[in-house]
Design a protein around this nucleic acid. Structure first.
Lengths: 207, 207
DNA sequence: TACTAATTTCGACTGCAGTCAATTTTCACT
DNA sequence: AGTGAAAATTGACTGCAGTCGAAATTAGTA
């Protein structure tokens, strides 16, 4: 790596670290780019040559965190568990990280779920990494007969992911507390697997 | 109504209308509060006495639109149709309005699904209106034996709503086109009703 | 009507995100 | 080492969101 490249990497890292540390200490809104620049020992313009907007700084951090989460998931994964258990593990691990970084998580989800026209494509590769984790699990579920074979894997992931987003939203809006997340997720996943229709329309029992 | 009240109402309306017209003409980002104020014939400070932030102007507009949507839904609703059909009608009507106001819809969904800590409670009442529309439909579905009786109505709505958010997100991120929304929604809703598990784990047929 | 208190309106002001032209640093080649 | 082109860095500058205290308008009272 050339001297130039090395310097760039070092500076980029310094900027992200300064940003995270200041955001954590004073909050995102209360931290100015100029503060970050000074803390990182560079000029304001330099920050903008590495990150196009202030929000991109968050994204830099979150993508780094996601990397860690994905590694953690691979380690934790138990291929012998049921689909329900594996999905719960995956999404609860993810949720755990969100609780650790509530504000960052919120800003990140906003951007990745409803992105500005202009930065749509950035997120697509992050999604790919997700699919790489979920596909084999769900595929195995189909092979084991736990999941229908006539539902495409992409749709399978969509079902689980949509419930995850929904629950996170309910948590952010205060409709459910931290402790209620896991039971709610389990119940919703279970209902998703079983379906909302009665198995036998004429003989259902109220629970 | 006192003279003062009447004036306030008129001004508020003038401001919202000026905002919508300018946002539509030049986009949200390219419109300044000062422009809106001038167009509405008031001072900048006055705008801020009616709306706390620029985003609130969007919310004012969207809530007005939602009102219209809800009325439209009540008119359109056909209580004899299947749950699948009714849910499709409701969410496709909503989606139609989103397509008409792509940018507003995006900003609104961001705010309502992942709101800032400080304005969480504003959205809760809007949600109530939703439930008022969905609950009776789903309840009837339960009575008719189309839906399980052992799933709470709140959870029922959560399932459908979560898929809706997911699809909207897929549309905003360009993963699916406008024309693909309806078939995707129908397929996902159908899968949700049937469940992701095979009915009979040992005798499923690949489609 | 006249006077006072309460409410509303206003635009000058502050602070920050993001831009850009000028300057400095790095690199490739002699 | 010396030179010129390319890339990186910088902070002064622009434009706008949001604030705030002073001025104007309205309501209440006699």
């Amino acid at each position: 790596m050339s001297v130039r490249e090395a310097k760039k990497q070092r500076k980029k890292k310094a900027i992200v670290e300064a940003a995270i540390s200041l955001f954590s200490a004073q909050g995102y809104e209360n931290t100015s780019i100029e503060q970050i620049a000074r803390a990182a020992g560079v000029g304001k313009g330099t920050v903008y040559s590495y990150f196009q907007t202030k929000k991109d700084l968050i994204k830099g951090f979150c993508e780094y965190e996601l990397e860690k989460i994905h590694l953690e998931l691979v380690k934790r994964s138990n291929r012998e568990a049921t689909i329900l258990e594996q999905m719960l593990t995956i999404y609860m691990t993810e949720f755990h990280h969100v609780t650790q970084n509530r504000e960052f998580g919120r800003l990140y989800m906003r951007e990745s779920i409803f992105p500005k026209e202009s930065d749509v494509q950035d997120n697509l590769e992050t999604d790919d990494k997700y699919f790489q984790i979920l596909f084999p699990i769900l595929q195995k579920g189909q092979e084991r007969g736990e999941l229908r074979k006539d539902v495409e894997l992409l749709y399978m992931t969509a079902h689980f992911y949509s419930l995850y987003i929904m629950i996170i939203s309910a948590w952010y809006t205060g409709r459910i507390s931290t402790g209620e997340v896991e039971p709610a997720m389990e119940l919703l996943f279970r209902q998703l697997l079983e379906g909302l229709q009665p198995k036998n329309p004429n003989s259902q029992v109220s629970k």
